[in-house]
Simulated scan of single mutants.
Amino acid sequence: MDIRVYHTADLPPATLAGIRALLDAAFDGDFDDEDWDHALGGMHATAWHDGTLVGHASVVRRQFRLDERPLRVGYIEAVAVRADHRRRGVGGALMAPLERIIRDAYDLGALSSSHLAVPFYEGRGWQRLRGPSWAMTPDGLVRTEDDDDGIFVLADAPVNSEAGLACDWRAGDVW
């Protein structure tokens, strides 16, 4: 397996199209244009097997507040592995370079996880936040309780798991 890391600006058009097709297939039609937009503008890890794209994950810059403290956050987006390559270490191989980028370039890493992926992220050292979640909207702070208990952080120092976390505003799913 070959892992390649690119900035969005350096992705060849064919690779970019292949990533979108992989994400559309992996999320069974539950990956829209806003989700795609969220995955762009940062660093992408891609996994290749015999010249075929089999996995993708990206990290993008976001601005959060953790207990009122502003933080520059590396936010994980668009993690997917082709169905016939799952449970073979591809996800971990994709996350490793992105976690290094987070540790070296950001105050904190964050992501929103599906229930199925919780053991994967916990096994990699991501910590589940149990405190309230918010979005910093143009109209002020808005509670995002549907996202509570699905937000994970990656930090070198322990984070208060009961802390309140507020994310910046964006179209579509804020988390």
Rank of each mutant, 00 (worst) to 15 (best):
V174K: 11
R130P: 06
G125D: 09
G125R: 08
Y75W: 14
R100F: 13
F120D: 05
T46C: 10
T52I: 15
V174A: 15
H7N: 11
D173M: 13
Y106D: 02
A83T: 07
G109N: 09
I3C: 12
D28G: 10
A171Y: 11
A155K: 01
D10N: 15
M95W: 06
R82G: 05
L23K: 03
L66V: 09
A157G: 07
G140N: 07
A9L: 03
V159H: 00
R20N: 13
R143P: 07
R86H: 08
V118L: 12
F64S: 03
V5I: 14
D146H: 11
A96V: 01
L23N: 09
P70Y: 06
D33Y: 02
P97Y: 01
R61C: 15
R88Y: 14
V54L: 04
H44S: 05
L108D: 10
A14E: 15
A26R: 04
D146A: 13
G91N: 00
I101C: 09
S133K: 01
L71W: 06
A9S: 11
E145Q: 11
H7R: 15
A21C: 04
G89A: 08
L11G: 05
A47Q: 06
D173P: 09
W134M: 00
H38M: 06
A157Q: 15
Y6E: 14
L111F: 07
R69I: 14
A96S: 03
P158D: 04
R61Q: 12
T15R: 10
L66R: 04
L53N: 00
R128P: 09
D24N: 12
R128N: 13
V118D: 11
V90I: 05
A135D: 02
A39I: 02
A117C: 11
V54I: 13
D2E: 15
R4I: 12
V159M: 00
A14H: 13
D148A: 06
P12M: 09
W126C: 04
A93C: 04
F120G: 07
R124A: 03
P13G: 09
D139H: 11
R4H: 14
E145P: 06
S113D: 00
S114K: 02
I3Q: 02
L23M: 10
R62L: 01
D148P: 08
D24R: 11
H38Y: 04
V142Y: 08
D173Q: 15
A171S: 13
E162T: 12
L71F: 09
P158M: 05
R130G: 14
G91D: 06
V81Q: 02
D146Y: 10
